[in-house]
């Protein structure tokens, strides 16, 4: 039984079929890539997995339970964390607050009576763990910056940190490396790998940085025009002529 599985997802928007009978599965502790040309439906699939969009057909299950009808927050509380391709941050809050919110909301029951009795205030240990994660993502010392003062790449890192702070069992990352250069991308990959080793979550990665997908993931799904065209071990997928024609062009791993 897979940890997170989607069966036969179909999603249509006015006139176009963004996803057409797509099935994927993800195990605990696995790293899986999801690639495809622009507009192939990768982000739409993420939205269906998390419940931001309701597919017309198909089902999503998590840890053996059918979650197709659950609202977004229930899925998040089950342990699905994600980042957004178009950054979605809490405007008006500091960088550290982002992590603190995520941690609180996940761990505390958040009952009003606890707040009223003063049991809901953040504890020093929590703040420390937030700062430690920021440090390891290379955002050390930025905890107090307002979120609006960050550059695009930094904002993405904060999103990753926020997702990790919810103690997820599955993390969905939508182009985490855009806005980062090669060295920073490598550093992010290392950090992710380390934290994944500690926590054992499954990781689904959408990326156009093929270099990163090739070096980081074990398995890869390829979408084109809403349909799954191939899947399998990453190196094999990268050699697939259909994938090359639709997506990679004359890219050769390890040359950029």
């Amino acid at each position: 039984m897979s940890l997170l599985a989607a069966e036969g997802i179909t999603k249509r928007f006015a006139g176009i079929t963004a996803l057409d009978d797509v099935s994927i599965a993800l195990e605990e502790g696995e790293r899986v890539g999801l690639i495809g040309p622009n507009g192939a439906g990768k982000t739409t699939l993420f939205n269906c997995l998390l419940g931001l969009l309701r597919p017309e057909a198909g089902s999503v299950s998590f840890d053996g339970h059918d979650i197709t009808r659950l609202p977004v927050y229930r899925r998040a509380r089950l342990g699905i964390g994600r980042t957004f391709q178009r950054v979605e941050l809490f405007s008006g809050s500091s960088v550290r607050d982002h992590l603190l919110f995520a941690h609180r909301i996940r761990s505390g029951t958040g009952a009003l009576w606890k707040d009223v009795l003063g049991l809901g205030l953040p504890k020093p240990a929590e703040i420390e763990s937030c700062d430690a994660l920021l440090e390891s993502l290379g955002l050390g010392g930025m905890g107090d910056e307002p979120i609006e003062a960050l550059s695009l790449g930094q904002s993405r890192l904060v999103e990753v940190a926020r997702a990790l702070m919810t103690q997820p069992r599955v993390v969905l990352l939508d182009e985490p490396s855009s806005g980062l250069d090669r060295a920073e991308t490598n550093a992010l990959a290392e950090t992710l790998a380390r934290i994944q080793l500690e926590q054992g979550f499954g990781l689904l990665l959408v990326e156009h940085d093929v270099e990163l997908v090739a070096s980081f993931t074990e398995r890869t799904y390829v979408l084109n025009f809403g349909r799954l065209i191939t899947s399998g071990d990453t190196p094999e997928v990268m050699q697939d002529p259909e994938v090359r024609a639709a997506y990679l062009g004359d890219f050769v791993a390890g040359t950029q």
Binding site: L50, L52, P71, V72, Y73, A76, R77, G81, R82, F84, E88, L89, F90, S91, G92, S93, D97, L100, F101, A102, R104, I105, R106, G108, T109, G110, A111, L112, K114, D115, G118, L119, G120, L121, P122, I147, R162, A163, M165, T166
Partner: peptide
């Protein structure tokens, strides 16, 4: 200062993101 307030600030910043962390 506590959980309820944090949830509200998160919601105010971005509803989508707030729900995606379980608010």
């Amino acid at each position: 200062e506590s959980s309820t307030g944090m949830a509200l600030r998160a919601l105010r910043g971005s509803e989508t993101a707030a729900e995606s962390i379980g608010v």
